[in-house]
């Protein structure tokens, strides 16, 4: 009968988990108790079945090929070792062998002494080499520990940096979104501003236009001719632009060396200002001209049209045919 503590040791031994004193004493117990040894074997068998449950890829195919190559090499080596070597022995061979043995014995004796010395030296070298190997291993182990520590530290630092980087990237992403939104807002505001400016300009133009219209001076020019009492003219003056339009009708035709000339009477000017010459349609006696003055006009008291020589005169000299009131 195996009690529980012994069963426990058997289970641990089956899985290779015994250590120290327990490991040292357990084989003796197994040797004395075949039932205990059998239990260990059975538990080892049961535990071994777990290997089939481990998830795993298949071992590399090359592994089998490599193993078979090694087996082939071992088989060839064994075959060579076991090949019989048959040589014909001549009759004088024993004498030769005896002579060789005699000489060889002396030589071997000397060789033995040399070999002993060399063996001792080799042993010393081996001990020294083992010592150096142990030192190297210890140093390597120490270096591994240091490197592992450094790697762990560096990994921690890298992790912290990575986390900061991710946080910064997140903030940058957020800021980018905000920037995009702000840019859209600015673009919308710019558009609104441009539209407002356009509206303002339009309103300003309209206002200016309205102001111009209000300031326009419109007068009728009546006939001074007894022969053409139906002749008339209408003048419109835009003081802001210093230009105007004159439309005349039913004026009598002139001689080829004559032109009609428009005069503008500015109270602030010493003499009527020249508004330009014009000719009429001979059939209707009408004309429509846009006129400007060479001198600035502050206000117009009167419009007049006279008959002048061809090309006009610097001052009104000819017959006045139309005049405003």
């Amino acid at each position: 009968m195996i009690d529980e503590p012994l069963e426990e040791l058997a289970a641990l031994h089956a899985l290779g988990l015994l250590e120290g004193e327990e490991l040292a004493s357990f084989p003796t117990k197994m040797g004395r108790d075949p039932e205990l040894a059998r239990l260990v074997d059975e538990l080892r068998e049961a535990g071994a079945q777990l290997a089939y449950t481990a998830h795993s890829p298949s071992p590399p195919r090359e592994l089998k090929e490599r193993l078979l190559e090694k087996v082939d090499t071992a088989l060839r080596f064994r075959a060579e070792q076991h090949q019989p070597r048959k040589l014909a022995a001549p009759a004088w061979l024993p004498w030769i062998v005896a002579a060789v043995l005699a000489v060889g014995g002396a030589w071997t004796g000397q060789l033995y002494l040399v070999s002993r010395s060399e063996s001792a030296m080799l042993r010393d070298q081996k001990i020294l080499a083992e010592y150096e190997l142990t030192s190297a291993r210890n140093q390597l182990r120490a270096e591994r520990l240091v490197i592992h520590h450094e790697v762990a530290t560096a990994t921690d630092q890298a992790g912290a940096v990575q986390r900061k980087l991710e946080a910064a990237e997140a903030q940058a992403g957020q800021a980018g979104l905000q920037l995009t939104a702000a840019q859209k807002l600015i673009a919308a505001r710019d558009l609104q501003l441009a539209m407002a400016n356009d509206r303002s300009a339009a309103l300003e133009a309209q206002a200016k236009h309205d102001a111009d219209l209000a300031n326009f001076q419109i007068v009728t020019l009546g006939s001074l001719l007894g022969s053409s009492p139906q002749a008339l003219g209408i003048a419109v003056w835009n003081p802001a632009r210093q230009e105007g339009i004159l439309k005349v009708e039913k004026l009598p035709a002139l001689a080829a060396d004559q032109d009609y000339q428009l005069w503008l009477s500015d109270p602030h000017a010493p003499a009527p200002v020249d508004g330009g010459v014009f000719s009429i349609d001979p059939e209707t006696g009408g004309a429509r001209i846009i006129f400007k003055t060479d001198k600035p006009i502050r206000s117009i008291a009167r419009f007049a049209v006279s008959v002048e020589k061809k090309g006009g005169a610097p001052a009104a000299e000819g017959l006045m045919v139309l005049q405003s009131k």
Partner: peptide, 19 residues
């Protein structure tokens, strides 16, 4: 831990048809 290993391994042996 030792007790669980013992019990688990014994049970596994039994379930697999061992003694």
């Amino acid at each position: 831990a030792r007790a669980r290993i013992r019990l688990g391994l014994l049970k596994l042996r039994e379930a697999l048809g061992g003694r």
